[in-house]
Design a protein around this nucleic acid. Structure first.
Lengths: 245, 245
DNA sequence: CGGTGGTTTGATCAAAATCAAGTGAGGTGG
DNA sequence: CCACCTCACTTGATTTTGATCAAACCACCG
């Protein structure tokens, strides 16, 4: 647990600017938000289902995920989050958390208290608009996740999930050249795709033996881009990464 | 296709008020939005993937759904929408549609042009906040849809989907007493749950023969509420229907 | 009265789950 | 330093769930 760090909101500013134009004044106001920096180890919760947090957690570095459990104890990973994301932003207006947010890797999180954030948003509709837009993009990503889990077979499902993550990491400079570091275990990949560990293991083998991609030593490496995109059934429109369009 | 109707935005006003307090002035401004009323027959699109609409579609009556297709032509229904919803609200800030929105039943839709809506939102942060909140709740519903499709078996999946729809309809006075009208075909239920028609038919039979629920003549009728809720693995927190909490 | 769209049922098949049993790499403590 | 433990990964055998294929059936409608 650390103290307030003025520059901690930078990851947020960068994210906001990447999608839309922010005025100098707005940037300044975002930077002035009080932020408490905190680090979390793998698996540690940012917030849990049922919590009523009074702050949001901006991811400064690391990978985090949302998850939820059935009454039979099965886990589903609902989304993955990278630097610049605020996975529990909803808690600003929805008071009870309906899912967990957890660090997947070691993470640096910036805790932003709701009160000053709400005040900022009420004063600066342009900032509110940009964050709302983020929520809308996130909705689009959730919908793609639904069709992924609901209608694609295991290979396509896994490939799609990985390619989406790659494209998002690439957009913020965390990956390039169709390679990226990924600390997820096969069990976590299973929970993200709605499959089992055993089956994920087999699918990885099939993709590897087909020369399409490999996942070794925590590194995803796409060997045949064209075929990878094809098996993933991936079209990037839903990521809405080109705000002008 | 009809002309402008001043009272058409009422469904929206009611929805907004049900969740949060709106000032008289804000209500007035929402009512003054220009709205073109239009009716659509079953299956007709409100917007399609790839469109760049310049208006949003408020559902005044009827049931609509979002859907998306894989490259193999499989369809996934992503969400269901009832009176008061604006399923393509995202188009106000995300210019290219990444999915279809279609009328499921005969629908009355109020088309609200983006430009005056954007102006209203910039002038009234409280209205923007409420619509953003709607987007956040919708995100929560999408996440529950993911765990439903990813981790629940066919019976639970179908029961959960129906119970969610019931609870939402109940909240706006469209259903009560654990019964509701539903014109969906079994093929549509299949596309919503990520199953096949044949299997939906069998699951409906199992639920019927177990005395849990029946679906006949376009009417869903829950016979054993306790067991239905249990089978559905349903907990309503994620609907965030009690804004005060 | 034949056509069409939706439902139902049976038979068979396939994808993925489950069960079971290793392997292998780090990490810890005796 | 090595024995051992744990956690992740891997592989095989078997089972289950739900998909696919095929054929009726049924109600409504022009």
């Amino acid at each position: 647990m650390g103290g307030p760090v003025p520059q901690a909101a930078d990851a947020l500013v960068r994210k906001l600017q990447s999608q839309s134009e922010l005025s100098e004044q707005d940037v300044q106001r975002v930077r002035e938000l009080p932020v408490i920096v905190k680090t979390l180890g793998p698996g540690e919760p940012v917030v849990r289902e049922g919590d009523r947090p009074n702050h949001c957690g901006l991811i400064i570095s690391g990978l985090a995920y949302r998850c939820k459990f059935t009454d039979e104890g099965k886990r589903q990973i609902l989304s993955l989050h990278i630097a610049g994301d605020v996975p529990d932003l909803q808690s600003i207006y929805l008071h009870v958390m309906d899912h967990d947010v957890r660090a997947q890797t070691h993470c640096t999180i910036g805790l932003i208290p709701h009160q000053p954030l709400r005040e900022l948003l009420d004063r600066c509709p342009s900032v509110m608009r940009i964050l709302w837009r983020e929520t809308l993009v996130e909705g689009a990503i959730l919908r793609e996740w639904i069709i992924n889990v609901g209608r694609r077979n295991a290979e396509r499902r896994l490939a799609h999930m990985l390619l989406e993550l790659y494209r998002r990491m690439e957009a913020v400079g965390l990956a390039s050249d169709f390679k990226f570091a990924l600390q997820m275990t096969q069990a976590e990949l299973a929970d993200a795709t709605g499959l089992t560990v055993v089956h994920i293991n087999r699918v990885l083998r099939v993709l590897r033996e087909a020369g399409i991609m490999e996942f070794r030593k925590n590194l995803v490496n796409v060997l045949d881009r064209h075929r990878f995109i094809q098996v993933a059934d991936f079209s990037p429109v839903y990521l809405h990464q080109h705000p002008a369009l």
